[in-house]
Computed example of a mutant assay.
Amino acid sequence: MPLATTRRTGLVDQVIEQMRSAIATAEWKVGERIPTEPELVTALGVGRNTVREAVRALAHAGLLEVRQGDGTFVRATSEFSGALRRLVGSELREVLQVRRILEVEGARLAAVNRTEEELRELTEVLSAREKSMEARDYTVGVDKDAEFHGAVMRCSHNTLLTELYQGLTEVVRASVATTVREAPHKANVDHRGLLRAITERDPDRAAAEAAGFLDELLAELADSDA
């Protein structure tokens, strides 16, 4: 890592904050295993009980997941995101439904409020996404897909909407990864229509484009359950 050596007062709280910071800054990425207990004890200069209490607290908050015999893994970047992940669990339909609610309005507002600088960012991220998906580098592609949708939400210039969506980042990434894993032919969904609508400041078309591919996935799920 390494973590800074803690002071001798409020050790558990200090360890929690340092671990939280490592997660928030992506030093410890979602899905990755964090350092082992002995490594944390050495890095922090605290006892095992202090480390265990901190891990327990962050696991309870939804940021970490302790897997018996396998280690401790980063589950979410914030308590809000962790709570959302517990709420929707692994049910893809629920994730897609929540995404649709937020992304449709986000796209509509983005078409009205985006700046030229934000438009350039959207174009660059979408280009990187398409190249990764076409090369079947799905790990990078999924990250770029989530980055693109997050950038669209920022273009809305609605702080609350953006923060709500940010809390869903890990859930969105997981839903995209699940879609890619279960239906590789859906990996490179064409988002150029959405980008064109935002570029041309057409809110209704942007909303329709945002809803389109999610509605298609939801319809496929309904058919598979029929």
Rank of each mutant, 00 (worst) to 15 (best):
V142G: 01
A207I: 05
K29W: 04
R196L: 07
E17T: 12
R33P: 03
V180H: 00
Q14K: 09
L218M: 11
I16F: 02
L160P: 00
N158Y: 07
A59R: 08
R93F: 01
I16Q: 10
A43S: 11
G31L: 10
R67L: 07
Q18E: 11
V152I: 09
S90Q: 13
L217R: 15
E130P: 00
E216T: 10
L221Q: 12
G89Y: 02
R108A: 12
S90Y: 07
A57P: 00
G45L: 03
A26N: 15
L194C: 05
T9N: 13
P35N: 10
A211H: 07
L122P: 00
A210L: 04
G47D: 10
D190R: 07
G212M: 03
E121R: 15
A54N: 02
E170L: 02
A219E: 15
V15L: 13
E163V: 13
E27S: 12
T199A: 13
T5P: 07
E94H: 14
F148L: 14
H149T: 08
G47E: 10
T178C: 05
A57W: 01
R181S: 13
R7D: 10
A206K: 03
G167P: 03
H185M: 10
L195C: 02
A146Y: 00
T169M: 12
V30N: 08
V98L: 10
V98G: 04
R196D: 09
V66E: 15
E27Y: 04
V88M: 04
V41G: 03
E91D: 12
G82A: 04
E182I: 03
V12G: 02
V51L: 12
M133V: 08
E65P: 03
A24D: 11
Y138Q: 07
T162A: 14
T25L: 12
D215C: 08
R99M: 08
G62K: 03
D137E: 13
S21A: 14
G10M: 09
D13N: 14
A59W: 00
E116V: 11
N188Q: 09
V171E: 09
T42C: 11
R100D: 01
M19A: 09
V30F: 09
A22N: 06
H60E: 14
R108F: 06
T77I: 07
L218P: 08
R129D: 00
T5Q: 11
L168V: 08
F80Y: 14
A24K: 13
L122Y: 01
R100F: 02
R201Q: 10
Q166H: 09
A128S: 10
A59V: 06
G106S: 12
Y138K: 05
L58W: 02
A197M: 04
V88L: 13
V172K: 09
L109Q: 15
